[in-house]
């Protein structure tokens, strides 16, 4: 079985590097075991096991169709929204399996925030976009609390200074880069522990991309981040660990520095050096 021969990195392997380069063990946040996803008869993800460390940025890379987005959407059970999908295996967040029979997908999605490839603000005001998650989850008791939490989220997403005078304006009037940071603020407002980002900068210009990357770097203090990207340089810049997917399988998961300089497998090396897809 091919998957058996793959490196499933141990906790120590994928421990974080601090700024100075020393290895810090931050513990496992998400523990994925034997995860497979099917769309009808097609197997989009094949027996993936992987430990995602807390308070780190883990990048998922690989050619399109390799299963990296499917993997991301399996972590908060968004896959289920597409008819005829099936998932086997387990995804434990803080030791709790999100696919356990008693687990509530709605609760899972509140704890695991998600930012999408194409910025998708609701056609509502800036304020209402951020307040939406708080309202549907009943997280703000009073109007004042709601306003405080909206402001806090916008500040965390580094957007407050730009929009504090435009809270009542339509979110669609913001620039594309601002819209994407608004979507991040919207995801943060419900206070998730894990933030999933599906190519969050692929539709942005270089300057807006840089702002998102800076933001990702700051956010990992408080959140565990999994980011899907097709941009190798971006993975190298923002992530601590990198997972390389190929044809639905996890080929290699290791420290980003190691993946890009001395990967264990030939396939990984060929891909990161641009010899593959």
């Amino acid at each position: 079985m091919a998957s058996r021969t793959m490196a499933i990195p141990s906790l120590a392997d994928v421990a974080a590097r601090g700024r100075e380069g020393e290895v810090v063990d931050t513990g496992t946040k998400v523990d994925v075991r034997g995860l497979s996803c099917f769309y009808g008869e097609t197997r989009a993800l094949d027996n993936v096991s992987m430990r995602i460390p807390a308070h780190q940025v883990t990048a998922c890379v690989g050619p399109s169709g390799c299963g990296k987005s499917t993997f991301l959407r399996a972590l908060n059970r968004m896959n289920e929204l597409i008819p005829s999908t099936r998932v086997t295996g387990s995804v434990a967040i803080d030791g709790q399996d999100v696919y356990a029979p008693e687990a509530d997908p709605v609760e899972v999605r509140r704890r695991v925030g998600m930012v999408f490839q194409k910025s998708n603000p609701f056609p509502k005001s800036v304020f209402e976009n951020v307040a939406y998650g708080l309202r549907v989850n009943g997280l703000a008791g009073s109007r004042a609390e709601l306003e405080d939490r909206v402001e806090a989220s916008l500040r965390t997403a580094a957007l407050w200074d730009e929009v504090q005078d435009r809270l009542r304006d339509s979110a669609l009037a913001l620039s594309v880069g601002q819209q994407q940071r608004l979507c991040i603020a919207r995801a943060l407002a419900v206070e998730p522990d894990v933030l999933l980002m599906d190519e969050p900068a692929s539709a942005l210009d270089p300057i807006a991309t840089q702002r998102i990357e800076e933001l990702v770097y700051q956010l990992k203090q408080r959140y565990t981040i999994v980011i899907v990207t097709h941009n190798m340089q971006q993975a190298a810049r923002v992530s601590d660990g990198t997972a390389f997917f190929w044809l639905g399988k996890l080929v290699e998961h290791d420290l980003t520095s190691r993946i890009f300089t001395a990967p264990a497998r030939k396939l990984t090396e060929d891909y990161v050096t641009g010899r593959l897809g």
Binding site: M78, K124, V136, C183, R186
Partner: peptide
């Protein structure tokens, strides 16, 4: 109504009904 809006709402922990009434119908 673009799928992305439904996805964003569901990813925030909204139910199908909350998504429909809060996002899809207004849009």
């Amino acid at each position: 109504v673009p799928r992305g809006l439904r996805d964003a709402s569901r990813a925030l922990g909204a139910t199908r009904a909350q998504t429909t009434l809060g996002v899809v119908l207004p849009a």
